[in-house]
Design a binder for these strands. Structure first.
Lengths: 334, 334
DNA sequence: TTGAAAGCGATACCAC
DNA sequence: GTGGTATCGCTTTCAA
């Protein structure tokens, strides 16, 4: 039970702590005799020595820990980003401190976590407005990288190419012959929402379809929002819908079912951000996969490089993944 | 940027570090003059002093941090449990270190996290078999509390009353006149699966319905599993289905839709563990809410009390919450 | 009521 | 190549 300390190992190996430290730390230029090195390593192994990160951190002023703060845990996008960050961090010798905060608590969290030497840097996802986020981040005393959004003035952020994704979705629909395609947008004014709307227009333009504002509704990111927005759009008689998320797509499908429309015979539905829940809907939802795990990975990589003193190299938006065709999309009705 | 240390505060206040420490720590019997106390507090506040948890932990051998290790982040049950643990921990002055591990990595995680003074105790959720989990936990060097399952020999665990929940679901169905009620069970041999099956039988018995093994299928915890199991059950012509989870319920609904059965006119579906995804299905799924957040809270409370030297008081299974009636259940067809 | 000083378990600089 | 030793920032006796 009693923890094995460096001193214990050194004593057992008959060397000084400093020597043991040198070896155990895996220092590059270990000016230590091979024989001694091996002996110390062997003994440490036998004694199951594990360095105390508190003591180490106190001395080095580093924790080899990255913090990641997300607004929701049960959001597939963030869950997946966390996984990616976790993998990248682990590969690079860092731990990940996951911090889940409700909107509004973000500032305090960032302040606490970053000002108490708990983490060397921060990965931040936020659904808050620019101004709020900016204020929150002002409290950060460590380098940070934004995920899934940009913030004017913040140099490091990793985003998904929502515009290309939306376009890809629309192209799938136009290829199926659809021309009256509705769009359920996310939160008005949001970065991704803006991008997706643009991609939606790109897709229409590529097929020579005129943009019609009446076919765009704001659904936000809830099922209820999708239901409402879809209901409002019904009188426009779209033959297909591009939803910003799986959740709003699900909400929209409820409206369509209620209206007695068959999916996909009467109307096709496509969502953005593929995730297991797409298969839980009926019919299973066609959707554009997004590299959310990659986003976490890249963000972690960027942060670690920044911590290493490298200069912030902004990365381009991550291109969408494959279009996963399921049962919710089909040829346009004649 | 330079961190404010206790020494800085003490110097500014014209007192010794030890005195500053005493008041800043909020010690109970502060043998410190009120005047001095106030002065120190004020100065600390002004200087925005925050204690360095590494230094403090190194000295006290405590981190005031609880670890929580979960197998999945984007599982509403765990996400909610985390939230509960987080709230309870915060209220009691503890931080929560969330650790997401794929099955198989659990042992290493537990070992690392608990043997390197990162946490004072552990909250553990696991989908692994008893034997595996037992091995994993053997590496734990700190007290721990299990969530959502039991493990023979492990004294502290907090579980949901799955049996009562299943029974509640069945009672809703029998009250609606259903008598041929199928059950989509979880993983065979699992603790919760066993409990639910028992609750299902309880519910049938209460309505004077004989248990029929042919009406029970194993769906596991995936949509695909639900789909398959439901398909196999169809020839038995049930008029209602009790699914172990929302996910398997969704899978079952896909089968029903494909078979041309109307929900709930031809067949009712009910799931366990209410969550937002229930509203994403069509029709929206009736389900039995479970106190998953409470589970996290109680687990944290138990752990903190154990850390305080109290004796493990086992807690009874948490009773199910309300039955949330949505569109997927209705009167039995005549 | 307050101060002095000894660690907690590492790292890193400086001798030898 | 190896050993001494002064920190890192805080808590906690023990004196005064």
């Amino acid at each position: 039970m009693a923890r094995v300390t460096l001193a214990d190992v050194a004593r057992a190996a008959g060397v000084d702590m400093s020597t043991a430290s040198r070896v155990l730390r895996g220092e590059a230029s270990q000016r230590v005799r091979e024989e001694t090195r091996v002996r110390i390593l062997k003994i440490a192994e036998e004694m199951q020595y594990l360095a105390n990160p508190l003591a180490r951190g106190l001395r080095t002023q580093r924790t080899d820990t990255l913090g990641i703060v997300v607004p929701q845990l049960d959001n597939p996008v963030f869950a997946s980003a966390i996984r990616g960050a976790e993998l990248e961090a682990a590969e690079r010798g860092y731990s990940l401190l996951i911090s889940h905060r409700e909107p509004g608590e973000t500032a305090t969290t960032i302040a606490k976590i970053s000002r108490t030497n708990r983490v060397d840097g921060l990965l931040v996802a936020s659904l808050d407005d620019d101004e709020v986020l900016r204020t929150d981040l002002a409290a950060a005393r460590v380098p940070f990288v934004l995920m899934n959004r940009i913030l004017p003035g913040a140099p490091l952020s990793v985003v998904l190419d929502s515009r290309a994704a939306a376009r890809k979705g629309v192209e799938h629909l136009t290829a199926l012959g659809h021309r009256r395609i509705a769009h359920l947008a996310g939160r008005e004014g949001g970065f991704n929402a803006r991008e997706r709307l643009q991609g939606y227009r790109d897709g229409l333009a590529a097929a020579g379809i005129a943009f019609d504002e009446a076919l765009v509704g704001v659904a936000g990111y809830t099922a209820e929002g999708g239901t409402q927005a879809m209901r409002a759009l019904l009188p426009q008689h779209p033959t297909a819908v591009l939803a910003a998320t799986l959740v709003s797509a699900a909400g929209a499908m409820a409206t369509l079912h209620e209206a007695g429309l068959r999916i996909p015979e009467d109307i096709s539905v496509i969502g953005l951000h593929d995730a297991p829940v797409a298969r839980m809907l009926y019919p299973a939802l066609t959707s554009v996969a997004m590299p959310t795990e990659e986003m976490g990975r890249v963000a972690a990589d960027l942060l670690i490089r920044a911590l290493g003193g490298e200069d912030p190299t902004p990365v381009a938006p991550l291109p969408p993944g494959t279009l996963v065709v399921r049962g919710s999309t089909g040829p346009a009705p004649i």
